[in-house]
Amino acid sequence: MKYLFTLLIFISSLVAELPPQVYDKMKAISPEILKVLVLHVNKHGENVDAYAKVIKVQRSVSEFKAGDEISIRYIIPNRLIGWVGPSSAVLLHKDEEYTAFLKCVHRECSLAAKGKSFSKSPYQGQIKDVPQTEF
């Protein structure tokens, strides 16, 4: 019995999430902070393709405006026992509104804050300057 208890404690410690402050930093430097209305969602295995309309812009490096339509592509991986790393993003639902933290090229967007890239509530955190990247 003692060994079983030790084994259960060991196994439960194998799954680890990133600390909240890591997600807070990702959100704070996200190039796009948008309130979106989801128009359509397709899920194929782990891949998710969503189409959304921008309702409100909190920050947009891509200069999105309310009324613009964007696509959001991301993966919801099948996690195995013992995985370590960022959480998985939620599956978006048609006709629901989200605050989205995104990185976009043209109108094609991906997640800027890993599994915490979508929220049902408005963003209340500090917004920091977006780091400049060199190409």
Rank of each mutant, 00 (worst) to 15 (best):
H44E: 15
G115D: 01
K43T: 13
H106R: 13
N47F: 12
Y3D: 09
G125V: 04
P131F: 01
V90F: 03
A16D: 06
F5H: 13
A28E: 10
K56P: 03
S121C: 07
H40A: 09
I81D: 02
S30M: 08
L92G: 05
T133N: 09
V90N: 02
H40V: 04
V41H: 00
K53C: 01
V84H: 11
L39Y: 01
L34C: 06
V54D: 05
L80R: 14
L91A: 03
K120I: 11
V36P: 07
S30N: 06
A89G: 08
A52C: 05
S119C: 05
Q124I: 09
V48W: 12
I55H: 02
L102P: 03
T99D: 00
V54R: 05
F5V: 15
H44F: 12
L4C: 04
A50T: 07
L7P: 02
V41C: 04
L4I: 11
G85E: 02
V22A: 06
T133V: 11
A113N: 03
A113H: 00
Q21W: 10
P19K: 13
H44Q: 12
L14N: 06
Q124S: 15
S110T: 15
V61R: 11
L18H: 08
S110K: 08
V84Y: 12
Y98G: 01
K43H: 04
G85F: 01
E46R: 13
E17A: 02
L102R: 02
L111I: 01
L18G: 04
A16Y: 07
Q21N: 13
K35D: 09
K103Y: 04
Y3C: 08
Q21R: 10
